[in-house]
Structure formats: structure tokens, C-alpha cells
């Protein structure tokens, strides 16, 4: 099963967003899009070309964009806002909180360039806190797909979901390894590999790193159960508990701060329902910096060897407990 997960070329997840937005724009006339001066970065050109009357260029004014989106939603539209993840969340948190989340507006906050893989622009733009910020908002759904195909499917799926959604994706060209015809279900984890020794739960770009790690661990005779968890909220409690009841130890992997990310959501679930040894692969209370995506993933402890090491550590802890 693991051997069949291979990279079939590379494309950025943000390209998946652009393709998904265009596709859902064709299917649903209520879908509208807004952008804060980052059309090219968000890959929104195809939508704009075919549906110019349903696109609104807001300029460098993200707060206004979130408010306008809330108003459009009030009028029955399904607005997709597009800008970098930093400007989609931290910069406009109160606008999202009051006008969208508390007001339960059907707005899709779509955020590119999340995490350190944004690269050379550096820490001002590399938000690593956004999952935490957005999952704390009552009623918000938080989704972080892992490759081009999954991002395209997620973009289309959220249009059909009634309620505010945060969709997080990234800048770099990234391996495509999921099925382009898969069914995307919000809140439903995808079991990528069955295993018995350790559960690895990964989201976003780090799903691919987790695949690589699982392959290396298999060579050491360690059987990894690999979960691709695109939806961080609502979390697929059942899938996680099913897996952990078998493996009795967990590693989470995400391109985000350790505080407040996927790992904390999983830890909260396990603390309540099934306490077991757990390790985090995440950024440890630090900002990023300029560099190449691969260099940054390595420097900030988010690379394949980090996931392998975390799995080995958690297995040792499990052995001590047993």
C-alpha cells in the first residue's frame, strides 16, 4: 500500500485552489471571489477571466475584504476571499471574528503562502499560527489539504458546505500523490496506509514528508499507520481513536507552531479519550526566516528525518510504558 503512494509530478497547492475555484465557479453561479492585490499569487486568473462580474478586486485592504465578503454572504452569495495566510488571519482576526464567525456568514477564507515553505520572503509573511487562530473561532471549519489534487477537491467541497471555512494552502511546487478523483469529505480523515506500530497523523505539505518517513521506517521494520488529516476542525475523532487503539502511540506532523495546531487538537482528544505517548513535529515557538523551502523545513524540524526520529522516540516511550 505504501509503495503505491508515489509522486506523479509536482504542482503547487495554490494552483489546486485556482483550478478548484474556476471549476466551482462554473458549477455554482452564487460563487464569487475577492482578492487583495494578489491575483497571480492566488492563481485566480481563470476564474476572473470567465466570471469577471463575480470577481472583486479589493486592493491592499484585507479588513475591508472580509467585511465585504460578509455582506455578499448576507445577500446569498458564497464569497471566496484570497490573499496570503498571514493577511487572511492575523491581520483581520477581529473582522473575521465579528462579521463572519459570530455572524455565521458563509464565507470561505482561502489562504495561500502558509508556513515556512513560503521561502525567501521571510518570517513577516510565514504565518505559523493561523491554524490555531482559526480553529479557536466557534463554528469555523479549518482545512489544510496536502497536494494539488486535494486542494482542488477541497476548494470545490467547501462551496457546498454552509458555514465559514478557513482553507489553508501554500506556495511551493509540491509532489502530487493523492487521487484526483477521490471523494473529498470535510471532516473525514484519509487512511493512507494501514500499520500496527505507530500512527502518524499529518496535514498539509507534511503529509508527503510523512509518506517518505513511513517508507523509511518500513525499511527498519516499523509498521506505520498513516493518516492524512486535511480537516483539522472538525477533527475526525473516530478515525484517530480507531488507529490509536491499535498502535498505542502517535506522531503528528504539521507546518505550524506546536502551540495551537493539529498536534494540540489530537492531544486534546487523546488526553480525554485515550492517553498514549505522543510526539509533535511542528515549529517550536519560533518565527521562520528567509531561505529555500527545503532548507527551512530542515532547519525548523519539519522534514522527513524529523518525522522518522519522532516515530522512533515515541516507540521507545511506548516500549517503556508496556
Amino acid at each position: 500500500m505504501l509503495d503505491q503512494i508515489i509522486s506523479r509530478g509536482k504542482k503547487a497547492t495554490r494552483d489546486g485552489f485556482g483550478a478548484g475555484l474556476h471549476a466551482i465557479g462554473q458549477q455554482n453561479p452564487d460563487v464569487v471571489a475577492l482578492c487583495a492585490d494578489l491575483i497571480g499569487s492566488l492563481k485566480m486568473q481563470a476564474f476572473i477571466k470567465d466570471f469577471p462580474e463575480r470577481f472583486f478586486q479589493v486592493g491592499v485592504a484585507e479588513a475591508n475584504m472580509m467585511g465585504i465578503a460578509a455582506g455578499l454572504a448576507t445577500g446569498g452569495k458564497i464569497p471566496f476571499t484570497g490573499t496570503f495566510a498571514n493577511f487572511s488571519t492575523g491581520r483581520v482576526y477581529d473582522q473575521i471574528r465579528q462579521s463572519i464567525a459570530y455572524s455565521h456568514k458563509n464565507v470561505k477564507v482561502c489562504a495561500s503562502h502558509a508556513g515556512v515553505t513560503l521561502g525567501e520572503d521571510g518570517a513577516t509573511h510565514q504565518i505559523l499560527e493561523d491554524i490555531g487562530l482559526m480553529k479557536m473561532l466557534p463554528g469555523f471549519t479549518v482545512i489544510n489539504p496536502c497536494d494539488y489534487h486535494q486542494t482542488k477537491l477541497a476548494t470545490m467541497a467547501i462551496a457546498e458546505h454552509d458555514g465559514p471555512v478557513y482553507l489553508r494552502f501554500g506556495r511551493p511546487s509540491w509532489p502530487m500523490f493523492t487521487d484526483e478523483n477521490a471523494k473529498f469529505e470535510i471532516g473525514k480523515a484519509i487512511l493512507m496506509n494501514e500499520g500496527s506500530d505507530v500512527t502518524i497523523i499529518a496535514t498539509g505539505h507534511l503529509v508527503w514528508k510523512a509518506v517518505e518517513a513511513a517508507k523509511q521506517l518500513a525499511q527498519e521494520g516499523i509498521s506505520v499507520e498513516l493518516i492524512n488529516i486535511h480537516t483539522i476542525k472538525p477533527l475526525d475523532d473516530e478515525a484517530i481513536l480507531d488507529s490509536v487503539s491499535k498502535t498505542r502511540c502517535v506522531v503528528t506532523a504539521e507546518e505550524h507552531q506546536r502551540h495551537g495546531g493539529l498536534g494540540d487538537s489530537v492531544a486534546q482528544l487523546l488526553a480525554r479519550k485515550m492517553p498514549v505517548p505522543m510526539e509533535y513535529v511542528a515549529v517550536n515557538d519560533s518565527f521562520g526566516e528567509s531561505g529555500k523551502p527545503d532548507q527551512l523545513l530542515a532547519k525548523y524540524g519539519l522534514d522527513t528525518p524529523n518525522i522518522v526520529a519522532a516515530a522512533q522516540n515515541v516507540l521507545k516511550r511506548k516500549a517503556v510504558r508496556v
Binding site: 465578503a69 455582506g71 454572504a73 445577500g75 446569498g76 452569495k77
Partner: peptide, 13 residues
Amino acid sequence: SVAIGAALAKKLN
């Protein structure tokens, strides 16, 4: 901002 969005929705509708 919200009112502007609602006004745009009216135009679209």
C-alpha cells in the same frame, strides 16, 4: 464594508 458587500450582492441579484 459589510454594507458594501450587501450592496454588491443586490447588484448581482
